[in-house]
């Protein structure tokens, strides 16, 4: 058999396999809308705010709920302790504080 036929057959088979996997994923997602709803019901009842991924530290277990002092959690400028802390950085939400310095020369109105 010609090399070109073998080569094109292999490439085409791979491409068809890949496309069918992508299509099956799409169809599977469409068929299982109820599954998403079941998960949302669970989230609603338990008021879940985070994925139960890494449970080693509270700032990686509850990414959205943790405060900012992550590493060693007890003093500022401390070193990162948990491995996942370098993969899941702190995401400060809901903080509105500002740091402001004013010059001593500035005349207050």
């Amino acid at each position: 058999m010609k090399r070109s036929v073998v080569c094109l057959t292999i490439l085409l088979t791979g491409a068809v396999l890949l496309v069918s996997l992508l299509l099956s994923a799409h169809l599977h997602d469409q068929r299982h809308l109820a599954g998403w709803q079941d998960k949302r019901d669970l989230v609603s009842v338990l008021a879940i705010t985070d994925l139960s991924l890494s449970s080693e530290a509270r700032y990686t277990r509850h990414v959205t709920q943790a405060d900012l002092f992550s590493a060693f959690q007890d003093f500022p400028a401390s070193f990162e302790h948990f491995p996942t802390g370098s993969m899941i950085p702190p995401r400060p939400a809901g903080y509105s504080g500002r740091v402001l310095f004013e010059s001593s020369q500035q005349v207050r109105p």
């Binding site: 949302r40 994925l51 709920q65 405060d67």
Partner: peptide, 26 residues
């Protein structure tokens, strides 16, 4: 896949969660 899982399921999370902070901590 993880992002889809999070943003699809957590749409049912509470609209607002209110924490109290003291000394910068929860």
């Amino acid at each position: 896949a993880l992002k889809t899982e999070a943003v699809t399921t957590l749409t049912a999370a509470p609209e607002i969660v209110v924490q109290r902070t003291q000394g910068g901590r929860h």
